[in-house]
């Protein structure tokens, strides 16, 4: 008589595919505390040091706040978000190098979903990290000039930044295909952070050459957008510039990652 029943198959929907891959992405990310914790502690350490070391800067005439920790918290959020690049890109590079991507390509899942759903894990971690940074800042005297609503918008921007850097990480992993190249992003981002208006408002920078570099550096606008909610209140221009650059970056990076991977991950 009949024994085991053959397993019928139903087509897996896009939502189902995203859910499945996102679940895996979250599990993988959260199971690497050795990667997550340093990425979280390092920005907090820099926040602690700069908040004290930079206090002298608040005495400069025209400095927008008396609290340097409030001034620099925005940069800390940006710095924290940059770790999403190595995290997301590293996981994708591991999948490609290790052959796990081939396993997923042999299923009905669409290639775009395979790529984009990888961001789920870093989004969760990045968002939690941003909340922690904000809470720590508040505990040490940070004030949010834009109020509760501003704090929520701040977290939303932080999430957008995690998405931005995660996408850049995916694109780098897709284009370079190796973990080493993805890890090199860390150094690049450190350099770009320091060459921005992270430590001093642009209008107070003394050296013109540095002011020019900071003006052309997109990181300056990301930092200024987050900082504006803390220091200034609702600064439409700063927010628009920062959000616009971040959104444009997400679109370019994701689009680029999908295009590159569509070509490199061959499947008929």
């Amino acid at each position: 008589m009949s024994t085991s029943v053959a397993v019928p198959r139903v087509s897996s929907s896009v939502a189902g595919q995203v859910r499945t891959i996102a679940r895996r992405s979250i599990a993988r990310t959260l199971r690497q505390p050795a990667v997550i914790i340093p990425n979280m502690l390092f920005p907090l350490f820099m926040l602690a040091v700069l908040s004290k070391a930079g206090n002298q800067a608040t005495k400069i005439p025209g400095f927008p706040t008396k609290s340097y920790i409030t001034f620099v918290l925005g940069a800390t959020l940006v710095q924290g978000a940059t770790s999403a690049a190595t995290l997301a890109g590293g996981l994708l590079a591991e999948d490609i190098e290790g052959g796990f991507m081939n396993r997923m390509l042999l299923t009905p899942a669409s290639k775009s979903v395979l790529i984009i759903a990888q961001l789920a894990g870093v989004l969760i971690v990045g968002f939690l990290q941003s909340i922690i940074f904000l809470l720590v800042g508040l505990a040490f005297g940070v004030t949010v000039k834009a109020g509760v609503g501003g704090a929520l918008v701040l977290l939303a921007i932080a999430l957008l930044l995690v998405l931005l850097f995660g996408s850049i990480g995916l694109f780098t992993a897709a284009a370079a295909g190796s973990l080493a190249q993805v890890q090199a992003l860390t150094g690049l981002f450190i350099a770009l952070m320091f060459l921005s208006s992270m430590l001093m408002p642009r209008n107070l920078i003394k050296h013109e050459w540095f002011k020019t570099i900071a003006t052309y550096n997109p990181f300056s606008y990301l930092v200024e957008a987050t900082r504006s909610l803390l220091v200034t209140g609702w600064d439409g221009q700063a927010l628009a510039l920062g959000i616009g650059i971040a959104t444009g970056g997400v679109i370019l990076a994701l689009f680029g990652a999908v295009i590159v991977l569509q070509r490199t991950l061959e499947r008929t």
Partner: peptide, 27 residues
Amino acid sequence: LPPLLIPLFMFAAVSGALSRVSGTKGF
């Protein structure tokens, strides 16, 4: 490159961004 470039970036950033600190009281 990293052990050479990171300090140079830091030099540019700190001296470029914070040089106005030299004009504050106490410095």
